[in-house]
Nucleic acid binder design. Structure first.
Lengths: 248, 248
DNA sequence: CGCTTTCTTGATTATCATCAAGGGGCGTGG
DNA sequence: CCACGCCCCTTGATGATAATCAAGAAAGCG
């Protein structure tokens, strides 16, 4: 009902909450204006599929608010999450016409979309866009490689601790929180989504979360609200280099 | 002894075997000339470490010949391969001063290196380089995501079959081979490297290779020379969508 | 308040890791 | 040319970790 109202809330790029972190971050005023010409907002409800793998993609875009996941599914139903899309993250690949992964909204999501063909044209003529996209893609590649170590070599307990650290760190940077005292955040994922992220079953996720709680590494209020009394302990459980630079 | 000779073999970009696939692929003649000014060749012997994680990196570059690996290692020694670098692949990250991963030469390797600072300058002024690097990085990200499915959700047997398919496909495209008859190739990796690639132990790799051999999916001459009588069967073992487009 | 979705916990099983021993190829040196 | 040693690989026995199967509790929602 109010949906259409929400759609029009964020029309002006200057008021955009992701203005300085998204693919448009480096654009000058005139470049932004050209992006405005081809942009439109779309809203997706929690649980809704944004794009099916294999579907034709005629837009690319940025997550403005909410959380979405990128997943791959095998024929027999086994699924692996391969990307977690947060506000300012980019969706879609210039130069490719069909989606390679399922994109699903985990919470309500607002996306700032660009029609693909005009966006590609603009990118050819606007180095600032391509430069920013390169930077973002390199960051994602680094994240993917970190993730590969988690998937390939860590134990279930370490996997859970790793995921919690990642979410805690992100929340801290987004909300200007600090990492040297107790850290508190909400899990944006169900146990099943956590399992798909980590290559585990949801039962194992549940058990390991309980174990970390029993050992005092974390405390829970309800199932989703997590407090980490001492980040150092959590990072040790994750098997990461002892706090190396992370708390700085 | 002949080493220094080899170093000077590939001095002219026009004769370069990776000219049309590396980061310089889109460059015009004048752009290439500016790259020539800042490039130099380096050779690494099999087993030699190209860069240690955490080390200062004052160059970036392309693999000209040979194979190198990107690996991460945990404090207790567990290691995960996160990249397999083949001829034309790019090493290093513009805008970052220290290496994030160990780079190790698996075979003898020749690299075409660019001093980092001049390369970054040149990239700012040469969209053709940034564009090509973006394309290559997006491809790597796709490969990493495919790899994540393998690490997170596939069984040991499927992992081995997946790796063999990847190598077979690559060999076919490099050597203009076909994938619709028997396919033959050499494994460029030891059992241990395969294990680090797949998140397994070398014993499990050995057992699963033997099992695929016993079941007639592959045949072996020696330990490294593999023949796949029927790619369709191997792809089925890998758990991939039944040959979908792969044989085209 | 009842229903569905999400989560927890227990019992059992399967898969892969670990520990252990030995085979085969290859280069080096006697 | 052969013997020795080293590296890489194979195979077997055993054990640990996480998956599977199953039941029920808690939380969210109409």
């Amino acid at each position: 009902m109010l949906k259409e109202d929400h759609l029009s809330v964020t029309q002006d790029c200057n008021d955009c909450p992701i203005r300085h972190r998204a693919v448009c971050a480096r654009c000058e005023t005139d470049e932004l204006e050209r992006l405005e010409d081809i942009k439109y907002y779309r809203r997706f409800e929690a649980g809704q599929t944004v794009i099916w793998s294999g579907d034709r993609m005629d837009f690319v875009g940025s997550v403005v608010s909410g959380i979405a996941t990128l997943t791959q599914t095998m024929e027999d139903g086994r699924t692996q999450m391969v990307g977690l899309l947060l506000p300012s993250d980019f969706v879609g690949r210039p130069g490719r016409s069909t989606a390679a992964y399922d994109v699903v909204a985990t919470t309500d999501v607002v996306m700032c979309c660009f029609r693909k063909a005009p966006f590609e044209d603009l990118m050819e003529r606007t180095p600032h866009i391509a430069q920013r996209l390169l930077q973002m893609t390199l960051d994602e590649l680094d994240a993917a490689r970190e993730w590969m170590l988690v998937l390939g070599r860590k134990t279930a307990r370490e996997k859970i601790a790793s995921l919690l650290s990642i979410i805690a760190r992100r929340d801290a940077t987004l909300n200007m929180g600090r990492l040297d005292g107790p850290v508190t955040f909400d899990l944006p994922l169900t146990r099943e989504a956590m399992a798909d992220y980590l290559g585990l079953t949801l039962e194992t996720v549940s058990r390991q979360v309980s174990a970390l709680k029993k050992d005092g590494i974390i405390t829970l209020e309800g199932k989703r609200h997590v407090t980490v009394p001492d980040m150092t302990l959590l990072l040790e459980e994750a098997g990461d280099d002892t706090d190396g630079g992370m708390l700085v």
